[in-house]
Design a protein around this nucleic acid. Structure first.
Lengths: 212, 212
DNA sequence: ATGTCTGTGTGACTTATATCACGGTTGCTG
DNA sequence: CAGCAACCGTGATATAAGTCACACAGACAT
């Protein structure tokens, strides 16, 4: 995949003309396959990443390697963490995995700083990015602090449907991992939701029916 | 309380000379009393806040008004959320309360933008602030996603001790609220910790003994 | 078709946490 | 001092979630 200016404008509107040119000039395109790890916990970050295509999943990892899903990044978004870490030459605190084949644009960290003072739109973009990620994190906290498993499951499925469509190719075990629960619990809860006609369960997939 | 440059330099090192002058010139000092609310959920934010003195507690609120503690801000820190919200004229997502009497410096949001491109040190400060808050949030997520109540309580008490000293003036109910648990549970867990000589329980206060 | 692997369904059980219902203590206030 | 309110301790019980054990079903290779 290649990037041209129109392409960029669609994904990242409201940037300055010159900035698009710079991005095209200095950004390094990377293609990753579904399932690939984009960012490991503890990895030093040398560039900011803009998602051009595909869907990326962010996880938090615990000591024993259990992966807790925190949020998605999709085309037109930036990995705020990579921004902030990059700016301080620090290491990653999260795990990022491509859920689908994806294309990302890596911006070497030098430009990040430079553009920040040179282009007001870049500064706006970074700040907005941050705010959005922060909000996602707060929503995640709400879910685990205040909600029970069935509500969290509903919330989770809705997020998936929003990004991936009504037909989710996912296993019960996969959901359990993302929510840091266990397969049996998820299976039983899904059963209840099926009884309420919110969804239908198939092998290796779930079809979401509920509207609102 | 008033601010002079030396004062500022101690609290916020590594900023440019001119920037200190601007901060003093344009910042508005606000004194708040212990227990006061600095920021309500849903409130529109018009300025960025720098904490000059005292300790502020940040909460996330649920639909029924339950308050879940997320992190502290103390002197020398900035409310990142106020920064990001300010930049977009948006409303607050969190609740901030002064735990002690506190002094904050409000920077009208216009300067926030201006300084961002004018002073590299300001940009660095904002980004660093962000990163730190983000990390706190991730730690909070770790705690609730992966840990059990006793571990969370320990983690919580340690954070309090770090900020407030070994003698915590707090009730069991207060802790329960912060952790979104119930008084009885906290009482019982504290009992166990007392048996392990980690702390001693007094009426209205807890004395932390554990070293490491 | 046979075996094997992965995904799913389900009952029985354990455990952590929440809730209920008390009773006791401290300390303030009229 | 009486009375009240806030704080704390504790047993009984309820509930949600996690764990264990096992059975079964579809997919796929040999």
């Amino acid at each position: 995949m290649t990037v041209d200016k129109n392409n960029l404008k669609q994904l990242f509107p409201d940037l300055e003309e010159d900035l698009y040119n710079e991005i095209i000039k200095h950004g390094i395109i990377k293609e990753v396959k579904a399932g690939d790890t984009l960012l490991k916990v503890g990895q030093t970050i040398r560039s900011t990443m803009l998602i051009l295509d595909g869907l990326v999943k962010l996880y938090r990892e615990d000591d024993e390697g259990k992966e807790f899903f925190i949020y998605h990044l999709d085309a037109g978004q930036a990995c705020s963490l990579s921004m902030v870490c990059a700016a301080k030459h620090e290491t990653s605190e999260v795990l990022a995995k491509a859920l689908t084949n994806a294309t990302v644009l890596a911006i070497p960290l030098g430009y990040m700083d430079q553009w920040m003072s040179k282009y007001k739109s870049w500064y706006q973009f970074v700040i907005t990015s941050y705010r959005n990620r922060f909000e996602e994190l707060l929503k995640t906290i709400d879910a685990i602090a205040f909600k029970s498993m069935d509500e969290r499951l509903e919330f989770y499925l809705k997020k998936q449907v929003e990004k991936l469509g009504n037909n989710l190719k996912i296993t019960h075990q996969g959901i359990a991992n993302d929510l840091n629960s266990s397969r049996e619990v998820i299976s039983r809860l899904l059963k209840k939701m099926e009884a309420k006609n919110w969804l239908t369960i198939h092998r290796n997939s779930i079809e979401w029916l509920k509207k609102d």
